[in-house]
Amino acid sequence: MKTTELSPDEERHLLNLSVIPALIVTYILLAAFVYFGRNQSSLSPLHILIYFGIPFAIAMPTTIFLSFEVLYSRKARQPINRGARRLLGRISLTLLAISLLGAILSITYFALAPWFDENNLLLLTGVLWFAIWIFLMFHFKEAFNKLSSGKW
C-alpha cells in the first residue's frame, strides 16, 4: 500500500475534527448523568467528580486520540496499527494525568478535610494538580514529547 506522511497543518486539522466525536461522547455522558442524578440533591462535588468527572476525563481524550488515529490512517492511506505506538503513548499520558489526580485527591481529602469544606478541597486539589502537571511537563519535556509523538 502506498503511504504518505501528513504535514503538521494537516495533523492539526485532523485533531480539530477529532473533537466532534469527543463532544458527542461528553454530551451523552452528561445527559445520562443529569437524567439519573436529577433527584439526587445531596450529591457532593466529590461524588460528581468520581462518578462523572473522572469517566469524562478518561473518555474524552481517549476518543480524541482514537478518532485521530482512524482519520490519520485514512488520510495517509496506511494501516491503523502503524499509529498504535503513538496511541499507546498518548493513552499512557492520559492515565498518568488521571493517576496523578487520584493521588492528589486522596491526599487532600485524607489530610486536609478537617480544615476545608468540600468545594475548597476540590479547588485546592485542582490547583495542586495543575501545579504538579506544569512542573512535570517542563521538567520531563523530552519524555512528554516522545510519549505524545509515539517515538519511544
Binding site: G37, I54, A57, M60, G126, F130, I134
Partner: peptide, 15 residues
C-alpha cells in the same frame, strides 16, 4: 490539563 479542568468544572457546577 484542559480536560481535567473541565472535569473539576463540571463537578463544582453539577453539585
Amino acid at each position: 490539563a484542559e480536560i481535567i479542568k473541565g472535569a473539576f468544572h463540571y463537578a463544582l457546577f453539577l453539585a
